[in-house]
Write a protein that binds this DNA or RNA. Structure first.
Lengths: 202, 202
DNA sequence: CACTTTACTTGACGTCGGTTCAACAACGGG
DNA sequence: CCCGTTGTTGAACCGACGTCAAGTAAAGTG
């Protein structure tokens, strides 16, 4: 009902701090409710500011959502940067561990991010697709660098599609895992790893 | 701008015919735009009826969307019913062919259906999840009936999650395939088949 | 051809959430 | 202590959802 901090002292934050705070609140709300069930007023209320301020920082509600998605995609890509020079099989396990760590600690952002898939308009979708493309590229590069897969990779037209599909696989598994973790992190990791190797294997 | 058929003759359809028509228009619009960019007035205009009539058949916009999703899920399940008594490997190829045929001929409905994943509220989501669960069950039953996979299936806790992930894989691949069919139907079919076998194989 | 039924239209209205904007107030420098 | 900068507010505007009562006309029925 009331603001986060009591209404007695109206805090005045710097532009960046306020933006950050609003995006964090947005990530939580967008992770729990579909896009159009999140009211801009609700975000402002939880953040302890007025509706107007939100529109001062973000032109429209869509832009606000896009900013939440973009912020989360950046965090995700930053946390799961590839480690070059390591065999793909091994690197995959490590990368998946990092990924699952990210999913676990930033569950809200992760869920909010993946809402952009089906709920977004052109703008949001573009941000989302760019992030997915970056992940795909990351995976393809890691695979191509490994002598086990690299050489045969370029000859197959379905590899790109396979990687995209695998990302959807991993996403679905992780979202379900967050819902109720009936499997251990290691089991999830191995399942996803097995899936990728199964698709790109001859 | 104007109605589908010229405005000179106002056609009077049966309840079922009209519902069907409206749902078809809805499927097309929801396949091309996110939920909140589809106006109820737009649907009515294209169908050549008044806004009021739409609210006569569907209480709210959400119910309308849910009806679109449900209709499409029924069609999908009906068209991809399992054929018992056939080995899983073989049945998988046939089922995927049927599935891809459905995806191709009902692209609008297919896209609209999968918007419910992230754009839906509780009601819509329930419809969507029920359809997914039915597909999962269908796959698990087919696998369990085959002596090659059946016996070992019950012992593994990750099978359900794997199947769910595979559905997401297939969905992502099909949606991308609809976008620009750079791969033939056979290639897509084989890719998806390989994916499932790769995940449930030991 | 009357008569009934019922799909369908019309248009005005209330509501609610997104969006705009002029004014306000908290901080920082002089 | 005053003043400019700028974070922030509150209220009004708008447009889409949803309601409703009264009426219109297309089909079936005798």
């Amino acid at each position: 009902m009331a603001a986060n901090q009591g209404e007695r002292t109206r805090r005045r934050l710097s532009t960046e701090e306020r933006k950050e705070q609003l995006l964090t609140v947005g990530a939580r709300l967008f992770s729990e409710n579909p896009y159009d069930e999140v009211w801009i007023e609700q975000v402002a209320e939880i953040a302890g500011v007025s509706r107007g301020l939100l529109y001062h920082y973000f032109p429209t509600k869509r832009d606000f959502f896009a900013a939440v998605v973009e912020r989360e995609s950046e965090r995700m890509l930053r946390m799961t940067a590839a480690v070059p020079g390591v065999p793909a099989r091994e690197q995959l396990a490590v990368a998946l561990d990092t990924y699952l760590e990210y999913v676990h600690t930033h569950a809200h952002g992760y869920r909010a991010f993946h809402r952009a898939d089906a709920a977004g308009d052109q703008t949001v979708r573009r941000v989302y697709q760019r992030a997915l493309a970056a992940q795909e590229r990351q995976i393809l590069v890691a695979l191509a660098a490994d002598p086990e897969f690299g050489p045969a990779l370029g000859e197959r037209a379905d590899v790109k599609l396979a990687v995209r599909g695998w990302l959807a696989f991993t996403t679905a598994v992780c979202l379900e895992w967050l819902r109720g973790p009936e499997l251990s992190r290691e089991q999830v990791r191995d399942l996803c790893a097995r899936a990728l190797l199964g698709v790109i294997a001859p």
